[in-house]
Simulated scan of single mutants.
Amino acid sequence: MTRISGHKSLVYKECQPQFSIFDWDINSSLKWMEENWHYSVYVSIAYMLVVFSIQQFMRQREPFKLRNCLTLWNILLTIFSIAGSYYMLPEMYDTFYLKGINHSVCIASTNSIAQYWMWLFALSKIFELGDTIFIVLRKQKLILLHWFHHILALIYTWYSYGQNISLGRWFVTMNMVVHSLMYAYYAFRSMQIYIPRQIAMTVTSLQIIQMIFGFYVSGYAFFSKLSGNYCEIPVKTATFGFIVYSTFFFMFAKLFVNNYLRKFSNHTHHNHHHHHNAKSSKWTADPNIHHNIITIIIIIRMVKQQQQQQILQQQQQQL
Rank of each mutant, 00 (worst) to 15 (best):
S28Q: 14
V51R: 04
L76Q: 13
I26Y: 09
R3V: 13
E35D: 13
E14L: 15
S246N: 15
V43H: 04
H7F: 01
N68L: 09
E62A: 13
L145N: 05
I45V: 13
L98P: 07
H103A: 15
Q192N: 03
M251C: 03
C69W: 05
I208M: 03
I82C: 05
G214M: 04
I4R: 12
S104H: 09
K99N: 15
P234Q: 06
S160L: 06
V51P: 02
I54V: 06
M92A: 11
Q56H: 09
I151Y: 02
I75C: 00
S40N: 09
H38W: 14
S40Y: 07
N27I: 09
Q56F: 06
A200M: 01
N258G: 14
Q192G: 00
G228I: 08
L142Q: 01
N277Y: 14
L76M: 14
I297R: 01
V11N: 09
A238F: 15
G214R: 06
F264A: 11
Q56S: 11
F96T: 07
W24T: 00
M191Q: 01
T247V: 14
Q307I: 10
H291Q: 05
H270G: 11
G214I: 04
S218V: 13
L142D: 04
L206W: 06
Q56G: 05
H269T: 09
T204R: 08
A184V: 08
L312D: 07
Y47W: 02
C106N: 04
H273G: 02
T132P: 01
F57K: 02
M251K: 00
K65W: 10
R262N: 09
Q55A: 12
G168N: 04
L123R: 07
A83N: 10
I298R: 12
